[in-house]
Amino acid sequence: MTTVQITLPDQLAQEAQRAGLLSPARLEQWLRDQLADQRVEELFSAMDRMAGVDEPAAMAPEDLAREIATMRAERRTDNAH
């Protein structure tokens, strides 16, 4: 367990304390919610970036097989050294 110390204006700290917002359980839930929201925002941001990228043309199966064979040959060469 980690202890975190924060500095707040006195009035805000008192109001938050009276409202029960500074209890460990409430703070933990708030932080978990914030982290989940952040992950969702990052996902949508990544989706927006992906939508802005032009898709490459589809490769014919023969071209794909040739690319895979080339990649495997390069890995074998790299691993041999």
Rank of each mutant, 00 (worst) to 15 (best):
L27C: 09
A16Q: 01
S23P: 04
L64K: 14
R72K: 15
L12N: 06
R49Y: 11
E67V: 11
E41A: 15
V4E: 15
T70S: 03
D78T: 02
E55G: 03
S45R: 08
A46S: 10
V4W: 05
T3Q: 15
R75F: 04
A13P: 04
D78R: 04
P9I: 01
A25Y: 07
N79S: 06
D78N: 06
E41I: 11
T77P: 00
Q5W: 05
L12I: 01
N79F: 04
R76I: 00
A57W: 03
E74P: 00
S45N: 07
Q17F: 04
Q34N: 01
R66N: 02
A65V: 04
L12D: 14
Q11K: 07
D33Q: 07
A25I: 05
L64Y: 07
D37L: 07
A57N: 11
T70H: 11
D33H: 05
E67A: 15
L43D: 15
M71H: 04
A69P: 03
E42N: 12
R26T: 03
P9H: 06
D33I: 00
A60V: 02
A69K: 05
L35S: 05
Q14R: 15
A25M: 09
Q34G: 05
L21K: 15
R75K: 01
A46H: 15
R18L: 13
E42H: 14
I68P: 00
N79C: 01
Q38L: 15
E15I: 07
L8T: 00
L64V: 00
D48S: 04
A57C: 13
R75C: 01
P56T: 11
L21E: 09
I6H: 08
P9F: 00
Q29A: 09
M1H: 03
A36S: 12
D10W: 01
A58Y: 01
E15M: 14
H81V: 12
M59N: 10
S45H: 12
Q29N: 08
V53G: 00
L12M: 12
D54M: 12
D33L: 02
A16L: 07
T2G: 12
I68H: 07
M50K: 12
A19G: 04
A69V: 09
M59F: 06
L21N: 11
Q38W: 13
P61H: 05
Q29R: 06
I68Q: 14
Q14M: 13
D33Y: 02
F44P: 02
Q5Y: 02
A65G: 06
R72Q: 13
R75M: 08
R26V: 09
A73N: 05
R72T: 01
T2M: 12
Q38T: 10
S45K: 03
A65R: 13
A58V: 06
T3L: 07
D54G: 11
Q34F: 03
A13K: 13
L43M: 11
N79D: 10
G20F: 03
R76K: 08
L31M: 13
D37S: 06
T77V: 02
A19T: 05
E67G: 06
W30Y: 08
A51K: 12
A69C: 13
T3N: 10
E28C: 04
L12F: 02
R49H: 10
P24T: 08
T3Y: 07
A25L: 08
